[in-house]
């Protein structure tokens, strides 16, 4: 998987489809949103990709705790890092979108606040790791904290924003993803796998780089 080609080609095809069909395809006409509804393919895909990357990170953290294999720790860390990048981009794109549709770049919407809290919890994961010098300790405590950070995604972005009144669609018990079919045919086959695979791609590059540098360090030390 790490060095295979087919899913990278798939990623490119999906994203090209997203960008072409996303701009040229017909979209439902809605007041307030107008053409900005096309942000659906970009802004929302950022959050979904972040969630997928965090789930993969969680899986590797659990695998690390079960096996104590140091490689899984690297995997978990890099997936979390890319997830944070996607989350930050989701936040920035959402802020830009809100500025021109809801009238303010930040309006303390429950979903906005929840997303910020979730991202801060994940940023603390990086800080926590770097505060320890012992490799095993860092990996184990990091893995445990990563599981906790993932658990915090449930209240902060999946539950509370749904329960309360929100500017976002999906507030107050509505389903979050129930868009027009014209949006679905670009979002699900195009934007979702495309952006998520791009995140995975970048992460695998970082993992490989990390493994390489560790190998080099090891070779140096035995010389």
């Amino acid at each position: 998987m790490l060095r295979q080609k087919w899913w990278k080609i798939l990623c490119i095809v999906c994203l090209l489809y997203t960008f072409v069909a996303g701009f040229l395809g017909s979209v439902p006409a809605k007041p307030i949103l107008h053409e900005t509804i096309r942000n659906y393919y970009f802004h929302i895909a950022m959050w979904f990709s972040m969630m997928i990357l965090f789930i993969v990170s969680l899986v590797y953290s659990i695998k690390y705790l079960r096996s104590n294999n140091h490689i899984f720790d690297i995997y978990a860390l890099e997936y979390a890092k890319t997830g944070i990048v996607f989350g930050a981009m989701g936040l920035a794109t959402g802020s830009a979108w809100a500025g021109f549709t809801w009238g303010a770049f930040w309006s303390n919407d429950p979903k906005q606040l929840g997303a910020v809290i979730a991202l801060l919890i994940y940023l603390a994961y990086l800080v926590l790791r770097n505060s320890m010098t012992d490799m095993d300790k860092r990996a184990r405590i990091g893995a445990v904290y990563n599981i906790f950070a993932f658990a915090m995604l449930f209240p902060t972005i999946w539950i509370i924003p749904r329960l309360v009144e929100s500017l976002h669609p999906g507030g107050a018990g509505n389903p979050a993803i129930d868009a027009d079919w014209r949006i679905r045919i670009v979002f699900w086959p195009g934007a979702m796998p495309g952006w998520a695979l791009l995140g995975v791609w970048i992460t695998t590059l970082r993992i490989r780089l990390q493994l390489l540098s560790e190998k080099r360090l090891y070779n140096h030390s035995i010389r």
Binding site: P31, P169, N174, W181, W188
Partner: peptide, 27 residues
């Protein structure tokens, strides 16, 4: 997962999409 969610498109095409639009604010 992705194609699973794309599947309802086939069913949704025949219907008028007015109901779905209500989900969004200020519709």
């Amino acid at each position: 997962f992705c194609f699973w969610f794309a599947a309802p498109v086939v069913h949704a095409q025949g219907k008028d999409s007015v109901d779905i639009q209500k989900v969004w604010k200020g519709d």
